[in-house]
Design a protein around this nucleic acid. Structure first.
Lengths: 142, 142
DNA sequence: ATAGATGTAATAATATGTGTTACAATGGAT
DNA sequence: ATCCATTGTAACACATATTATTACATCTAT
């Protein structure tokens, strides 16, 4: 079980938008060429990023740009833009309320798993697009 | 995107095995009654827990028991027993190596996501079956 | 031997993720 | 005003993962 490719792809898109700003028009086809997915996937993802307020996309003319500085965009912003807000783990719906384990498992285990998810969110929030962009620029191994 | 019901179900199973040890024979049908899933799901999950060395199952006669104390079984043990070992996020296979973002994204983002997964594993390792069992016993709200 | 139980394969139904085609709508360029 | 590259979005196809269920061979205390 793993999270989908959407966070990595969305992050890739945002990095390209910022890196190539002014140099190339970052159309869905251009971005698709870097990420290596179908342009429609790019457009769908850009749509989610636009809904989340992270990018502005020029309808008609084409191209996208960030709405704010890369230092103010975190992986958590991107994660929330492309993933549903839900529990980290799926719980069995109707455990037996006659059983002391059954009637307590969701609360007892759920609260603890909730905290783990919160840690994950905190970790994602600590990584900015700027940090990733710097790493790409400084550690580039052509 | 969320993890499957397997970790919660496996944890439920282990809690029941320990809680009802000596009182009831914890067969797949008995456990299925508490978890509210099909007995075959229980048997498959018990199979994974047995492979991981967490339980012994009495073939033929029926019933299961833990191989060690609940304080020595963590959620990480259970997680590893029922989930594949893989990256937390799925990466796009072939990003464009001509693009500075494309040829660095996997390493730059991957190493950071790897750390987040490690934190999650550490969090899971910090929660023991004993802690959960105590919580079930002490906070039981019938 | 029998009865109840496990181990496991096979199948089905459902959901999710990803790729693709198609096309209306947009908006600058001419 | 028209053209054309582009976006936005629906529709569909396909693969994979998850969960439920049936079936049955195997096991073991009695």
């Amino acid at each position: 079980m793993q999270f989908s490719v959407r966070l990595p792809v969305a992050t890739h898109i945002l990095l390209c938008i910022e890196k190539f700003q002014g140099e190339y028009k970052t159309t869905s086809t251009f971005l698709a060429g870097s990420v290596n997915v179908h342009p429609v996937i790019i457009r769908k993802t850009l749509g989610q990023l636009r809904t989340a307020g992270l990018v502005e996309v020029a309808a008609g003319v084409g191209g996208a740009k960030l709405t704010r500085s890369p230092k103010d965009i975190t992986l958590l912003d991107i994660f929330r833009a492309v993933e549903e807000e839900e529990d980290l783990f799926h719980f069995q719906e109707n455990p037996n309320p006659q059983c002391p384990v059954g009637r307590n498992i969701h609360r007892v285990l759920g609260t603890r798993l909730e905290k783990i998810k919160q840690h994950m969110m905190d970790d994602l929030a600590a990584i900015t697009l700027e940090e990733l962009l710097n790493a790409v620029n400084e550690e580039d191994v052509p």
